[in-house]
């Protein structure tokens, strides 16, 4: 296996173990470029990559931008606040416009689930989902898995705990699909109102008490509490969340000595994570950022050769 089945990366649901392994292996080679004086290779010379962000983002957008630039692609950044979207242009029309400009890869973040799939059905470019509503955020899960594999040597057989607002989290969803495919045991923990019970059917273990869930966990992935999605009163208060589900001094005795602590960022320090955890030697939150660029470079490389091929969508 030396290529991906789809020319798009819309989510990890349905992506095979071989494909994920190929992306992670390629990312390993890409990470080496960071150690060089000249952090650039000519692989995507002449290709055009567009960042199309309908929701605010700093690190994901910057990460994709740097990944594209390190591979010598022409990068364009479009955000909804400063584009014709505010003038009322439809998503498909924007896609067609980018296609006319020769876009080979379009990276999109949008608040609506399925928006990336919709766009992929109307343009020839490869589409990468950088987060669509609370559906999927595959590149975040890929970089999380890359970090786990790098630090732990393998993913299979590990127990990975995801903490926080599972319900609204596209990061959790993509991680669950990817980790289960790679043979990890997945646990989730959070307030009952924020855990979709359907995940149990996929084989995910559901916990409601953080201390119990941490027992034997090899990896803890802490989700950001998305305050912008908490207006419905799914839990009584931020303070109460912090007390029961915040990763703070209280939970240190429950952590394994060799636990790996992940957080996709940006952190709400004092809510889901306290500085004492974020600064712990076992937390690799900054390294996740570097790994994010390497993983996205790998994806660009693997998708770039697919850009001019037709395929049926399923």
């Amino acid at each position: 296996m030396s290529s991906l089945k789809s020319k798009h990366m819309l989510g990890l649901d349905g992506v095979t173990r071989e494909e994920i392994s190929l992306i992670l292996k390629t990312a390993e080679a890409m990470k080496e470029i960071f150690t060089r004086k000249v952090k650039k290779v000519p692989t995507l010379t002449g290709k055009t990559v567009v960042n199309l962000f309908y929701e605010p983002s700093t690190r994901t957008r910057a990460s994709f931008e740097l990944a594209g630039k390190m591979l010598s692609a022409n990068m364009m950044n479009l955000s909804s606040s400063s584009s014709s979207v505010v003038k009322g242009e439809s998503l498909i029309d924007t896609g067609k416009t980018l296609e006319a400009m020769g876009a080979d890869i379009i990276i999109m973040r949008h608040s609506a689930q399925g928006s990336c799939k919709l766009l992929s059905q109307h343009v020839k470019a490869s589409i990468i989902n950088a987060g669509d509503g609370n559906h999927e955020h595959p590149t975040q899960a890929l970089l999380d898995m890359f970090t786990i594999k790098e630090k732990k040597g393998q993913i299979e057989g590990l127990t990975v705990l995801i903490v926080g607002d599972i319900l609204h989290s596209r990061v959790a969803r993509s991680n669950i699909f990817g980790l289960l495919t790679m043979g990890a045991k997945v646990r989730v923990v959070g307030p009952a109102t924020l855990i979709p019970v359907e995940y149990k059917k996929l084989g995910v273990e559901v916990f409601y008490t953080l201390e119990d869930a941490l027992q034997g966990a090899d990896v803890v992935n802490i989700l950001r509490i998305q305050r912008e999605r908490q207006k419905k009163g799914m839990f009584p208060s931020i303070r109460e969340f912090h007390r029961f589900y915040g990763m703070n001094e209280r939970i240190i005795p429950y952590l394994k000595d060799d636990v790996l602590i992940l957080h996709p960022g940006p952190m709400n320090q004092g809510v889901e994570i306290d500085p004492i955890i974020a600064l712990d030697d076992r937390a690799v939150i900054e390294e996740q950022v570097t790994n994010g660029v390497a993983t996205r470079m790998a994806l660009f490389y693997l998708l770039a050769g697919r850009g001019n091929q037709n395929e049926d969508l399923n």
Binding site: S2, S3, L22, E28, M30, P42, L71, A304, R306
Partner: peptide, 19 residues
């Protein structure tokens, strides 16, 4: 691999290994 001049013409992307 990342320096090849035929990446846009080959259909199967060659696997990239570490330098």
């Amino acid at each position: 691999t990342l320096y090849r001049d035929d990446l846009s013409t080959v259909t199967q992307q060659p696997i990239v290994h570490k330098t």
